[in-house]
Design a protein around this nucleic acid. Structure first.
Lengths: 248, 248
DNA sequence: CGTGTTGTTGAATACTGTCAACCTTCGTGG
DNA sequence: CCACGAAGGTTGACAGTATTCAACAACACG
């Protein structure tokens, strides 16, 4: 899936500005750390899991027994449609939390697939429940996470519902840039780590359209593209395309 | 906004099959009821608020101080874009909870506008916080609500990202039907309570396209339309249009 | 060195948006 | 009371964007 060359690039790009992103920056915060102070937890309640590119962390429709915090790597979550097709509904890098959509139903609503090799922290739901019964700050933290997800979904609604193809790709690039930057990585040079098809699925476009838009941006000197590697050259110009949003 | 005739219609249609939908069916569940058992709560911590059609319950960007449970009526939430335009991102009827996207930021991410007259229960956030510190089942209930919202957002991603105009309108009608049915109302005859423009904004379409699709469905004898009043005549046919989902 | 996957680009099509005309309803005010 | 304008809704004609279909290149893999 992921080429060796690209991985080497990624490793180079992924050098953090302010040291390695640690558990302190993780979305789950104390939900995991308090766990270790717990003492009563069995060894299996919180553990790490390594992922190979293309490996499935969990599958839609299967019982959900844990929350997952991305410690390293890049994952996508896909909602299955029918006849084997699916739509990418989430992209997750270090610090992101997966499994929030199955907390109440205890069934995974999506497939989670690793786009690169990586590592996730696995927090058993029963353990999280037990913890939150005792420590209300953990529960509040999880609610805050969930609330942020709900708010972020609104942005995606706007992207899918109100933006042109060019604007969607622009929004996607800026979002990726911001997310990498927030974790101490370069805001201008980063690896998309996924196919044009994945990007298109995430943005409600065909992969040809995504390819065309990236080529357009390249021709406009707004960025450089080399496969999945992107370098933003004129962020202001890309932001400007979002300046005139309204279509309906 | 809402015509007198339509209101009369709505009152007729809205006669519940199994009695009036009570607090027992409310999304907030005990979060509100436990409140009353609390004893220590001041009078302003939980109260009702009546809404006129077109009235604004809260506004994006303003501080959020409460959660809102719809007791009666129909509201929309809109995310402001720019230059005064906005996109409808949520439609809410009795039992639904509003304000979930601002729990962590304590700032409203959307405008909430009443589409009909109605009534909401207002639960102060500070009070909810206090309650959840003591009663962990309330916190769990709120987390479950949030989790369901995250899962439901995935459905909307699919609607906006993978469906044709016809399919989006079909999905919208079926969703409305299911939601009314879940609350004991007719699954076949209901009032949309909103303009074609609102529907289009919610579905990522223009109002003309929405109007055309409804006319198409009418011509196909799949439903009857009278302004905002809809009667589904051939639910199976409408569902069938969703049968062949994949576009990309 | 073939084969499959990914990505790019071109040409033609189709869907949806845009613009416009017209109708109905409602509210306002002469 | 009726005229008027505003808002919502429908429908038609046309335009434009994004999809579809197709060919081709680059690259990894066995």
């Amino acid at each position: 899936m992921i080429h060796f060359m690209k991985m080497a690039f990624a490793a180079e790009v992924a050098r953090p500005v302010a040291g390695q992103v640690s558990c302190a920056a993780c979305g789950l915060g104390q939900l995991c750390r308090a766990e270790t102070q717990d003492g009563g937890g069995d060894a299996s309640s919180v553990h790490q899991r390594r992922l190979q590119p293309g490996e499935r962390l969990f599958e839609a429709g299967t019982p959900q027994s844990a929350l997952y915090a991305v410690h390293a790597g890049f994952l996508k979550t896909c909602r299955p449609l029918q006849a084997g097709s699916s739509q990418v509904v989430g992209l997750h890098i270090m610090g992101d939390v997966l499994g929030l959509d199955g907390i109440s139903s205890r069934v995974h609503a999506t497939d989670a697939v690793a786009l690169t090799s990586g590592e996730v922290c696995v927090i058993a739901l029963v353990h999280a429940d037990r913890l939150m019964e005792r420590d209300h700050t953990s529960g509040a933290r999880l609610r805050a996470l969930l609330s942020e997800h709900v708010a972020r979904a609104g942005d995606q609604f706007v992207t899918l519902g109100s933006l042109s193809a060019q604007q969607r790709v622009a929004a996607f690039l800026l979002d990726m840039s911001d997310r990498w930057a927030a974790r101490g990585y370069s805001a201008t040079i980063f690896d998309l780590c996924m196919t044009r098809k994945d990007i298109g699925s995430y943005l409600g476009l065909t992969f040809e359209t995504v390819s065309r838009m990236l080529s357009d941006f390249r021709d406009l000197r707004w960025l450089r593209v080399d496969g999945r590697r992107v370098e933003l050259l004129d962020r202001a110009a890309i932001e400007r395309t979002l300046g005139t949003i309204p279509r309906r």
